[in-house]
Amino acid sequence: MRPFEYARPQNESEALDLLNDHDANTAVLAGGTDLIALLQEDLQAPQRVVDIKQVESMQGIAADGDGVVIGALTTLEEISESPLLADYRSLGDVVDGVRAIQIQQMGTLGGDLCHLPNCWFYRNGYGLLALENGDSLVAAGDNRYHAILGNQGPAKFVSAARFAPALIAWGADVRVIGPDAGSSEWLPLEHFFVTPKVESQGVSVLKPGQLISHVRLPATAGRVSSTYEVLQMEGLDWPLATAAATIDLDGGVVREASIVMGHVAPMPWAAHEAAQSLIGQPVDEVSAGRAGEIAVAQATPLRDNAYKVQLAKTAVKRAVLSAADMLEGAL
C-alpha cells in the first residue's frame, strides 16, 4: 500500500472539500471492504483517503413520508435489522446472501453501490476494460464469470453492486453530492450506473470528488419483493447471477412488476419485458418461468459463460416466485 494522507471529516461539506483537493485524486473510505483491497493491490493510489464514517448525516435509516431514506453509511447489518425496512424483503435477502458476518458489520450501502468489479482481469491490474492494444483480454481469455448481457462494447465485467437490483426494482433514488460543497442531486438509481466505453468513465455517474450520501425508497404500498442470488458457495462468495423482483399483487394476479438482474452485465440489468409479461398473470411456475426466459432472450454469452444464461433465467424465475412466497425446492 502506498503512502496517503488520511482525513476524517465531520460533515458532508468537509468531506467534499477534502475529496476535492489534489485534483480529486482522493478516495472515500467507509467500511473499507473494497477500498483496502484496492489499495493493497495497488489498483488505486489516492493521495488522500477521506474517511467519512464520522459524517452523521449519512448514517441511519429514517422514515421519509411513506418511504424510507437510508444513509450511505448504513451497514448491511443495520439494513437487515431495521424495522423500517422489514417490508422491503429483497434488501434483507441480499444481506443474507453476503453471509460473512464481517462484511455485514463493516460493509455499507454506499460502498456496495460503488463497489468496483470483481473481474479477475481488473483485479490483476489490466484495467476495468482489460484492453491490450485495443483487444479485449476478457473476450479472448477466461470469461466464465463475465457479462452475458450488455457486453457488446468494451466493458465485459459484471457490476459488483449487490443491492442495486433490489433497490432499482423498488424504484429507489440516490442522492449524489459534490463536487462543490453545496451541490446535491437526487436521481433514479437506475440512472446511476454506466457501462463504460472508455476506462476513465468508471462504473457510475460519479465524477471525481462526488459521493453517494443517501438512498430513498418509495413506499412499499403493499408490494412484495425478493432477491434471488445464485451462490456457488455457502460462505462469502460473489453471486454467479442474481435477480430482484418487486411485485404488486392484486388478488393473486400481478398488477405491476419490476425485475432487475445483477451480475449479468456491466450494470444492473432491468428486465422490463420480463416484468411486463407478468402483468395480469397469476404468479406461478409458468408465468415466472416465462419471465425468466424473456429476461435472458437477448443474452449474448461469451465463450465460457453460456451457463450463466441458465442461471440468470433461474434467478428471475425464483425471485418472482419467492416474492410471492411460492418458491419451493431450491438449493
Binding site: N118, W120, F121, N124, L137, A140, G141, D142, D237
Partner: peptide, 16 residues
C-alpha cells in the same frame, strides 16, 4: 484457473 490469453494464474486469491 489459468488464463490462456495472458498466461496468468487468474484466480490466485482467496475470493476466486
Amino acid at each position: 484457473v489459468m488464463d490462456n490469453r495472458t498466461g496468468r494464474f487468474i484466480n490466485a486469491d482467496l475470493e476466486n
